[in-house]
Amino acid sequence: MGKIITNQGMPQPKIPDGMPKINPNLPQKSPNKAGKVKNQMQALKQFGQNNMPPKVKSDIHTLTIVGQIEGHAVLSPKNKTTKYEHLIPQLVAIEQAKEIKGLLVILNTVGGDIEAGLAISEMLSSMSKPVVSLVLGGGHSIGVPIAAAADYSFIAETATMIVHPIRLTGMVIGVPQTYDYLDKMQERIIRFVASHSTIGQERFKELMFETGELVRDVGTVLVGDQAVKEGIINEVGGLGHAMQKLRTLINEQFPQEEQEDDCECSSEEIAEGNCGCYSSQAEFQPRQSVIEALEGDDD
């Protein structure tokens, strides 16, 4: 008794004084649970994996575009960024996944890389699934085309959008072609916004080159309903409005009969009212197959 037999003659590691001592004689509260936890811990230690929690179905996915939009250049870690290498594959996955019916894009961005921003905008506008965007806080600069790219866009009452000319960064060659190049880059943004919202190219340019609005820049600050009045955004609203609109668009695109029905009750149970899947009679809508089965019984 009391002699510890160790494997391969290795000395037993000494338990430090502060460590809790486990009494093997104590009954375990819940052996199954304890075993599960132990298995989880082992899995975590060995593979960096853990058992998945029960999956909750969500047919709406969300993209939060926050901070700077990071494209070809890696920004300093001091910046909060949304990276295009994350967003682009996510958009492809959302487009491809059958169980995802709609996409909500939430913007709170100061702008960023033009190429990345336009890539995201183009992907959003060409998606086959309903896309609703919501500007909260701010959706500035390259955030404007992203917000406009959605099928329907919302802006919070307090949110702002700053429309201003693009700036040259990095090495600038002092030749007239530089201006032409800048103009071309700007034109891409203007054209995209104009073709994906009700604002005209001329008006958008006017907003862009407005003076007397911004302290250190040329441009316009659009607060909430001003963005709606200018036609860049469809409606002033919040999360609830955006979700409701997205549901409406989803129902239009995927009519009721095509939507998944999780009810596993038999047609008899539904007919006798013994099915608990529908909370009230008003919500009860038998599927076409059920109606046909019931009609078949009468014959």
């Binding site: 939009i69 920004l75 300093s76 702008g111 890389d113 600069s141 700053i162 700036r167 960064t169 880059m185």
Partner: peptide, 29 residues
Amino acid sequence: MHYSIFVDGLWLDEDTEEMAETMELDYNG
């Protein structure tokens, strides 16, 4: 090329010595 309301100096700032090292990890997918 950037289209942002941020001042250039802020995002070009290379002073990163105080930032902790982060990495991306695929965890349970």
